[in-house]
């Protein structure tokens, strides 16, 4: 036993905001291993410029955002390629956002509806001035050349001649 034992002193100190009450800064950062698991083929599809929804093998319900099992009947679904064109179901332009996206503001979110699909798909709209965005506007999927394996690997632009639609 060493009665003179000492823990090592360090130099990083503490960032203090207030003394009464004491408020200090705590840095918090992690690397997190996220598995897309059963949704993985969707993200692989984006890298091949394919937009994959899913279709129920029992009741034929078509999901524009894929789900491995049907929300109506619980049966397994199969992958189902969506058409590259759809229409804006609804939209918003965000001037603020979560911190992770603040630098990207303003950006426009849209829900896209596709012919033959029962549900919608959340994406971003590019290249349409805010005053020209409207529900029903025909849009076309574009894909990033360098995939990041994120849902933002696909985004939508106005179809050629859409303003005359």
């Amino acid at each position: 036993m060493d009665p003179n034992a000492k823990l090592p002193e360090t130099q990083e100190g503490t960032v203090l905001f207030n003394l009464d009450p004491i408020i200090l800064k705590h840095h918090w950062e992690v690397d997190y291993l996220h598995s897309y698991a059963q949704d993985s083929p969707f993200f692989a599809g984006l890298s091949e410029k394919k937009l994959l929804g899913s279709k129920c093998t029992a009741c034929s319900c078509v999901y524009a955002t894929p789900r491995a099992h049907c929300m109506e009947c619980g049966s397994p679904t199969e992958w189902h390629e969506l058409p590259p064109e759809g229409r804006i179901h609804t939209f918003t332009t965000c001037f603020f956002g979560g911190e992770a996206f603040l630098a990207e503001t303003p950006f426009t979110l849209i829900l896209v509806e596709f012919e033959g699909a029962d549900t919608l798909f959340l994406s971003r709209l590019a290249g349409v001035p805010e005053e020209e965005i409207r529900i029903g506007l025909p849009v076309r999927a574009r894909f990033l050349r360098n995939s990041k394996f994120k849902p933002t690997d696909v985004y939508f632009v106005a179809m050629d001649g859409a303003q005359n639609d």
Binding site: D39, T92, F96, G97, G98, A100, R124, T152
Partner: peptide
């Protein structure tokens, strides 16, 4: 997987 990375923001969802 599908919503947060696109620009996760509840005010945006309610706006839509």
């Amino acid at each position: 997987n599908f919503d947060f990375p696109v620009g996760g923001f509840y005010s945006g969802y309610y706006a839509m």
